[in-house]
Design a protein around this nucleic acid. Structure first.
Length: 561
RNA sequence: UGCCCGAUAGUAUAAUGGUAGUACGACAGUUUUUGGUACUGUUUGUCGUGGUUCGAGUCCAUGUCGGGCAACCA
């Protein structure tokens, strides 16, 4: 390979990798520490996967470590259910955290930090109502103004803050604020809140506390305590950075640094926990792990693999500009993985009966089918029963086939996959005009692997032997929303939900080998797409979810007309 | 109209003052016992205007457009 060739194939660094390489090269750090800091108030979605891949990926690439730290400073919204799901999802994606930590682990330390700032004259207790505080903050174009509480003595502040902690005041009666600059052009510097009173039960600290730190007074300090070198978050936190640095500076603690990248947006879905929670609570979907949800749990149930999601995160890159990624890129990534790894099977989703008129009544032949043509050895084989009556797809027969239709129609020949070439001789319709049976004659010397017929056919179709068929329920999923960017549309985003996002096929005929289908394993139903067993599937009732369809150039052709 | 961030094909993402490249998509073709896969080819781009320079997507100025910021949320 030429030098140029190698050079062009070398993947360029994203801006965060560049920063890390510079910091390592300059000796600023010997190794890096990152963290993934979810709030346990919802399930992780594909946008979090981007952040997870970034944070863990950086540490993996440059030899550092990544902590999983729950940002659990608001007890009224948080729950252990979410903690558990988040841990499961991160693990499933294939990452191992160095330590499992909680911002709530630092409540004592954070309290001491606050006391330190009070002693330095940099924080005060304010008795104002939320409305008063908002009004006194001014607006982005007008400076805010102070109030009488701002000038309380250090002693009084210390006393009041201790009483806040001791539970002497009701919720909302007082807050602790940083004393910074009410005229700052950065709204976040206009004496931000540090602590508020909430007599609420916390999922970890129980009833030990009735004051809880705000995000801004918890996140940076938690990073600092953990010696996080690169604290990576999304763009909306840019204005918080000045405050992040201010607290670290005034507290004189380890200087973690914050860097921001743009969050992931994807077409035909929504990516905010608030909206996803709404879909769950209003039962628009079957829970957080509904296969139509953009949650990690949803993708897992849908049959997406960790590899495919990691590949996707790698392909979308990292930048600071707003973006809206094509869903087709994610689908490309999952097909790429599944094409290599999914076991091939046959299933007839919309059946019509094909009768091989010259095949002996009652005879059953066991034919051999390779499990995966992409695998080196074909992935092994399985046995498939063939008989006189077969199920084939309704769409594989046409009464009046157009020129480029390489399937069945009277007089047309096709290969039955793994079996014989058949020639269509006729069909039967019912009173409603629907085709009920298709007739064909097989060519005995055309059997797969032993074909001496010399006949060439353009098309190959899949089938399942009627007398040996098993049945299953199949769930076909489509995009959750009808429009590319539901959040950008007028009105409520829920108005744009795709009414056809789930199609249930109660009875689908599948080949016998599928009785041994394994949960979590990917299957390709030939010519139909990739499927996996649903979590509610049982040996009595098999249920398959369609992960993604195959690319279908014929469907495109038909659409064009 | 205060502050902050951003702008490269349809969508993403490179080019670090020196040939605007890659992927997905779309389109066309080759191969094929999956109208899949693989392979080949085609298509479409530096937000505008000035300036610096032998040379600007890149640096400077200015304008335009998009996004964010005034939760006791994170």
């Amino acid at each position: 390979m030429s030098v140029e060739k190698i050079k062009t194939e070398e993947k360029s660094l994203n801006f965060l990798e560049e920063i890390v390489e510079e910091d390592l090269a300059s000796g600023k750090y010997k190794s890096i520490v990152t963290r993934f800091p979810p709030e346990p108030n919802g399930y992780l979605h594909i946008g979090h996967a981007k952040s997870i891949c970034l944070n863990f990926g950086l540490a993996l690439k440059y030899g550092g470590k990544t902590n999983l730290r729950f940002d659990d400073t608001n007890p009224v919204k948080e729950d252990v259910e979410y903690v558990d799901s988040i841990k499961e999802d991160v693990k499933w994606l294939g990452f191992e955290w160095s330590q499992e930590l909680y911002a709530s682990d630092y409540f004592d330390q954070l309290y001491a930090f606050a006391v330190d700032l009070i002693k330095k004259g940099l924080a005060y207790v304010d008795d104002s109502t939320p409305e008063e505080i908002a009004a006194q903050k001014g607006t982005p174009t007008e400076p805010g103004k102070g109030n009488e509480f701002r000038n309380r003595s250090i002693e009084e502040n210390l006393d009041l803050f201790a009483k806040m902690k001791a539970g002497e005041f009701p919720d909302g009666a007082k807050v602790l604020r940083a004393k910074i600059d009410l005229a700052s052009p950065n709204m976040h510097m206009r004496d931000p809140l540090m602590y508020r009173i909430k007599h609420a039960h916390h999922h970890r600290t129980g009833d030990a506390w009735c004051i809880y730190p705000m995000y801004d007074f918890a996140h940076g300090q938690s990073d600092s305590i953990e010696h996080v070198t690169h604290s990576i978050c999304t763009l909306e936190f840019i204005p918080h950075r000045e405050l992040y640095d201010w607290f670290i500076d005034k507290l004189e603690i380890f200087p973690s640094h914050q860097y921001e990248f743009s969050r992931l947006n994807m077409t035909y879905t929504v990516m905010s926990k608030r909206k996803l929670l709404q879909l769950v609570e209003e039962k628009m979907v079957d829970g957080w792990n509904d296969p139509r949800m953009p949650t990690i749990a949803g993708f897992r149930r849908r049959g997406y693999t960790p590899e495919s999601i990691r590949l996707f995160c790698d392909k979308i890159g990292v930048q600071k500009r707003e973006n809206l990624i094509d869903l087709s890129l994610l689908e490309f990534c999952v097909r790429e993985d599944l094409n290599r790894n999914a076991v091939r099977r046959m299933a007839v989703l919309d059946p019509v009966k094909l009768v091989i008129t010259n095949y002996p009544e009652g005879q059953v032949e066991e034919l051999i089918g390779e499990n995966n043509p992409e695998a080196e050895d074909g992935g092994g084989t399985r046995s498939i029963p063939f008989s006189k009556e077969l199920w084939i797809e309704r769409e594989d027969f046409m009464e009046e086939p157009p020129k480029k239709f390489f399937r069945l129609g009277v007089g047309l020949t096709v290969r039955l996959k793994y079996a014989y070439i058949v020639k269509c001789t006729g069909f039967k319709k019912d009173d409603a005009g629907d085709v009920t049976e298709v007739y064909a004659e097989y060519i005995p010397e055309s059997r797969s692997g032993h074909d001496t017929s010399g006949i060439n056919v353009k098309g190959t179709i899949h089938w399942v032997s009627v007398q040996n068929a098993l049945t299953a329920e199949v769930r076909l999923y489509d995009r959750l929303f009808k429009v590319e960017n539901p959040s950008n549309e007028e009105g409520d985003f829920k108005e744009y939900i795709n009414p056809d996002s789930l199609q249930v096929l109660p009875i689908v005929f599948i080949e016998p080998a599928l009785a041994e289908a394994v949960p979590g394993a990917p299957y390709q139903f030939l010519r139909k797409g990739y499927f996996c067993l649903d979590e509610n599937s049982s040996s009595d009732k098999l249920i398959f979810n369609r992960t993604v369809g195959l690319k279908d150039t014929w469907a495109k052709e038909v659409k064009k007309g």
